[in-house]
């Protein structure tokens, strides 16, 4: 017996030392690829079709959004028009609302005005806590 034969030992276990690494790799992959798409924005409820309500002119605050982004403010029946920046709409609404609790904001936007100009006005109205808002197009 001069030759020693190497005895080969076969391991009966599945190697589990790298399992955690694999799991973490997958975990990090899913963590990175997950995107939470948030539903956010300015909410509004449109009027039902064919439901026009007659409103007294004195309860309406007309806000006309011009193509250049400025806002023409007309208070109810008074013929005078005040031109204001969208950022002033909040204060205008607050002072008018203090005098008349039934006030409705009628936002009329020029067809060529950019969408963001209307959003700027709507944002200010939301900020001022206005809940009766009407969105129309300027004809």
């Amino acid at each position: 017996m001069a030759i020693f034969k190497k005895k080969q030992r076969v391991s009966g276990e599945i190697p589990t030392s790298s399992m955690a690494d694999i799991a973490f790799l997958l975990l990090i992959f899913f963590l990175v690829t997950t995107v939470f798409d948030e539903e956010k924005g300015l909410s509004i409820v449109l009027p039902e079709p064919q439901s026009e309500i007659e409103v007294s002119q004195k309860n309406v605050l007309h806000l006309v959004v011009r193509p250049d982004g400025l806002v023409d403010v007309k208070r109810g029946e008074s013929p005078s028009i005040q031109t204001a920046a969208p950022s002033d709409v909040e204060t205008i609404w607050r002072t008018e609302y203090a005098q008349n609790q039934n006030l409705i904001a009628a936002v009329r936007t020029h067809p060529d005005a950019a969408y963001r100009n209307m959003i700027a006005v709507l944002d200010q109205l939301h900020k001022a806590g206005a809940d009766k808002i009407s969105l129309q197009i300027l004809e």
Binding site: E39, K40, G41, L42, S43, I44, V45, L46, P47, E48, P49, I119, L122, D123
Partner: peptide
């Protein structure tokens, strides 16, 4: 949207 009677609308904006 009004014609389809879907009257709840959110204007998607960024903060």
């Amino acid at each position: 949207f009004q014609e389809a009677r879907a009257v709840r609308v959110t204007f998607y904006t960024n903060l």
